[in-house]
């Protein structure tokens, strides 16, 4: 491991956190009725799929998953370089659904703000709840997560990276100075 990089969650801890969040989602929403899960591209998407699988197993019903591209809703496009964007894939109507919005890290809250605006343009969900693996603090907007895998106090200079098996070959949360 390179200097200054620390692993703060390993595979087992991530698995347990996701399992707990899945149970909390079911408990809070009194089942999986009308539940849809939307991952924020790109790193929220693997987590959204995992949560959907877990909830499906527990409740014995299929859960619909979508993925959301928020690039066109960001407030900082002038200062960030454009990323290659893949299209939003939400093939269902979100109106009257209980939407669980999933992102890997909650930091300033600006991505979540953009994601909520993007979902509202697609319809009128009955509820939007936010699930994140890491809440690292330093929010710049009045936004909080409903489901948190781990609260991780950080300084703004640190970089928190979530690796998923699907894209990086392992499940891990790393923090770099």
């Amino acid at each position: 491991m390179a200097d200054g990089v620390t692993k703060v969650m390993d595979e087992d801890e991530i698995r347990r956190a996701l399992r707990r969040i899945a149970h909390e989602i079911i408990e809070r929403n009194k089942g999986a009725q009308n539940l849809v899960i939307i991952g924020v591209q790109s790193r929220g998407v693997p987590m959204a799929k995992r949560l959907a699988d877990l909830i499906s197993q527990i409740e014995g019903t299929d859960i619909t998953v979508g993925s959301l591209n928020v690039a066109l809703y960001r407030d900082d496009y002038a200062t960030r370089s454009a990323r290659t964007i893949s299209a939003t894939e939400i093939s269902f109507d979100v109106t009257d659904k209980r939407v669980i919005l999933v992102d890997e890290v909650l930091f300033t809250g600006r991505t979540t703000r953009a994601a909520m605006d993007a979902i509202m343009d697609l319809g009128r969900p009955s509820v939007i709840q936010l699930a994140v693996l890491i809440d690292r603090g330093h929010k710049e907007l009045p936004i909080r997560a409903d489901y948190v895998g781990k609260n991780l106090p950080t300084s703004t200079k640190e970089i928190v990276e979530v690796h998923w098996v699907e894209t990086k070959g392992e499940d891990a949360v790393m923090i770099a100075k």
Partner: peptide, 15 residues
Amino acid sequence: SHKGIISRPVKKVPI
């Protein structure tokens, strides 16, 4: 990736 916006119920993004 932008084409999908044209067929949405709200055909507008704020960018």
